[in-house]
Amino acid sequence: MDAQTVTPTGSNTGTVTTKMTARDVSVFYGPKQALKSVSIDVSQENVTAFIGPSGCGKSTFLRCLNRMNDTVASARVEGEIKLDGTDIYKGDMDVVQLRARVGMVFQKPNPFPKSIYDNVAYGPSIHGLARNKAEMDGIVEGSLRRAGLWDEAKDRLHDSGTAMSGGQQQRLCIARAIAVDPEVILMDEPCSALDPIATAKIEELIDELRGRYAIVIVTHNMQQAARVSQKTAFFHLGTMVEYGDTKTIFTNPTEPRTKDYITGRYG
């Protein structure tokens, strides 16, 4: 058996640009420490997956990346998180602007109770990204196309977003997130409420969006992390145990705790 290096398709090759950096990030909910000194670099070119059991801190950490934890009164964040070298927790950071640059897609599809068109147009209109109706039409079409939803939505743009199927609603939420032309997209369990076909469509979409946006995805589904990401971080009890190339994490992880978790021996 000759030793050989196998490069699976979809693996990262070429140069990697760091988009976000986190250094010694700790999060407390009241007196309880939910995240312990996590340091990680998120690259522009790769999809980064966070995996780990419930309560391990992966969603908490994800929510630090666009300051969603600010909305939790008891939450306190320590450490440093930078987007393109700028500390996002420094006083002069405009949080609304930050969340336009670092968009988010949630577990449960949550379209506004508005038309499909208005769902996508909402962000660009409050951020003043379109000067007229024609420009807005262009943004809406472009976003729906990139979200793989245009063909299904183009004849019903003024139907309610909530009337779509779950998978379509989730792609609508992705279209809504990319309508404001973000740089980073955070996805918190984006497929856990979807059937396998809708899940596959989201995964294909993630692959198509890769490179254009830095993508970070939290998932309980390890096969999904293995399929869509190039980098995987394993969290356990508030610490980041291991972070590395996805193909290494799933074939030959370094840490025993990672191995026990991904092989189903945890606990």
Binding site: M222, Q223, A226, F250, T251, N252, P253, T258, K259, I262, T263, G264
Partner: peptide, 9 residues
């Protein structure tokens, strides 16, 4: 079973 890591190997 979609085996991983040491199980897969």
């Amino acid at each position: 079973r979609a085996p991983m890591a040491s199980d897969l190997r």
